[in-house]
Design a binder for these strands. Structure first.
Ligand code: FES
Ligand code: FES
Lengths: 144, 144
DNA sequence: AATAAAAAAGACAAAAATATCCTTTATTCA
DNA sequence: TGAATAAAGGATATTTTTGTCTTTTTTATT
């Protein structure tokens, strides 16, 4: 469904949203440990998200990544697009070079419904909406 | 969603179902051309499908791949499982090592619905059910 | 029996995804 | 100002996926 980079990216964004209330910063090490991802790879993903403005960063002592309040309204769809592009939202399920209404592949109609459900899920879900449940330990971002 | 190998595999199975009525054989070259896939790579995928009994094959002159009538009832889910395994049907959407009802990731509930829709689509779709529409040129297995 | 055709199998190659390491830049604090 | 800290960036390494090439095996035909 998503690339590894994208899975880490989504989990990281949700983690940062929860851990960086009123501008506190979350360090790379903290993120990698918090979502159980390889730290150096996570760095690359955070750089991409930061360049695209989905997350803020500050260098130096007490630096790290953070989000302001409205940034926690960023949707999972935005994160996915930033990392995996929008192939998932627009591409053909059977790998034809493009999804084409006029020249549909065998599963086009059904697949489009599913694709739209996925998009709808991701577009209506914000990285900041799990803060309380994560804090309560109801939801999890890693297994260990 | 699916790996390239799986996309080719599904398209090939649908192609063979349509092209191999009453035991006629479809050659590798024919398949690769018919679904626009790289021939040598397609060969590997066909070998896997053949080994797993999802398609029959005969060597030698006038050999090739074919399906008997009940084989055209093979579902897309069977093809996907044969090539990509069942991670798509059971795995966690955010890449946690397992999907766990008791320790759900943030999108677990919604993702499970989508996952089940995908599985349902694939389990209720048979490789042989597109024969007529493909013949009429309503459906397509390649773009060129 | 010899030849040709076609899939099976094995070895190899290229590309992409995943992951790591090292250096540079910006920032804070003593 | 100097040292320490942490992200940014660049180069490299590993693994997986995708793809190709060659040889072998099986079968049909002459
Ligand atoms: S053409 Fe395949 S999903 Fe639209
Ligand atoms: S735990 Fe992530 S989908 Fe179930």
């Amino acid at each position: 469904m998503f690339s590894k980079a994208c899975e880490y990216g989504i989990r990281a964004m949700i983690y940062i949203a929860q851990r960086s209330r009123q501008g506190e910063r979350v360090g790379l090490k903290d993120i990698a440990q918090g979502i159980d991802s390889p730290e150096a790879f996570m760095a690359k993903i955070m750089q991409a998200l930061s360049r695209q403005g989905l997350v803020q960063s500050v260098k130096g002592p007490h630096g790290g990544f953070y989000m302001d309040t409205q940034a926690s309204k960023i949707t999972l769809a935005q994160v996915v697009r930033a990392i995996d592009g929008d192939h998932l939202f627009t591409g053909c399920g059977l790998g034809l070079t493009e999804c084409n209404e006029k020249k549909p592949c065998p599963i086009h109609d059904e697949f489009k419904l599913i694709r739209n459900k996925i998009r709808s899920l991701l577009e209506t879900t914000q990285v900041g909406e799990f803060n309380e449940l994560l804090e309560k330990g109801v939801l999890h971002l890693k297994r260990i």
